[in-house]
């Protein structure tokens, strides 16, 4: 299945957002959005990933 992860096309196996994070090596404090909508961490296991989904994974960063 092809998805767009942080702006880059990726081929992944994961069926849920939680699995996807694991498959792609994310850990620690991150927040997620699927197709421009926020997905709380408590809903990642239930959130199915579909072909063509646009997924954003963000983390703490320097800011002003």
């Amino acid at each position: 299945m092809k998805i767009v992860l942080n702006g880059e096309m990726r081929e992944v196996q994961a069926g849920t957002l939680a699995d996807l994070l694991q498959e792609c090596g994310f850990s620690g404090r991150v927040a997620t959005a699927v197709n421009e909508g926020f997905v709380p961490s408590s809903l990642r296991k239930a959130r199915k990933i579909r072909d063509g989904d646009r997924i954003e994974v963000v983390a703490p960063m320097q800011g002003g």
Binding site: N6, G7, F26, S27, G28, R29, V30, A31, E56, V57, V58, A59, P60, M61, Q62, G63, G64
Partner: peptide, 13 residues
């Protein structure tokens, strides 16, 4: 602080 796409540096920061 801000949020940006995680590319590995987020957790250290």
């Amino acid at each position: 602080v801000s949020l940006r796409r995680e590319a590995g540096a987020g957790q250290t920061f």
